[in-house]
Amino acid sequence: MEQDWIMGLIGGVLIGLGAAVYLLGNGRVMGASGIIGGLIDGSGRNTGKERLVFLAGLVGMPALLYVMTGAQATTHLTGNWAVIIAAGLLVGIGTRVANGCTSGHGVCGISRFSLRGIVATLIYLAAGGLSLLLMRHVAGVI
């Protein structure tokens, strides 16, 4: 739909502005996996409060917007628990081992022409396409 990509572009700019505020304000890369991962493995202990406040905004703002607009949240997340758990584990391990996800390597890395960010993004896009191809069109699991 035509409207989808316009909303995508506007939403994308908002995400980019958030990353710009975090960078120019606090001097940090806005990577979702790094911000929460540092709380999990203890590497971000010294900046714990800052991380928690960031996460509060990330959770709170969509919640507020759903209440204000009365929009229905549609996630279409699969009902297959095994798939959900396997996917969650893969995303958790993968983003921390690779030291970045869509926001860190993708948004923040590509915008500074980081070779690591560009390579990581190409790889996880290809792996995502392949996993969807195999599991949906070949195995028919999702």
Partner: peptide, 8 residues
């Protein structure tokens, strides 16, 4: 690994 989980 991340991409595989993301696709799933």
């Amino acid at each position: 690994a991340f991409g595989a989980g993301w696709g799933l």
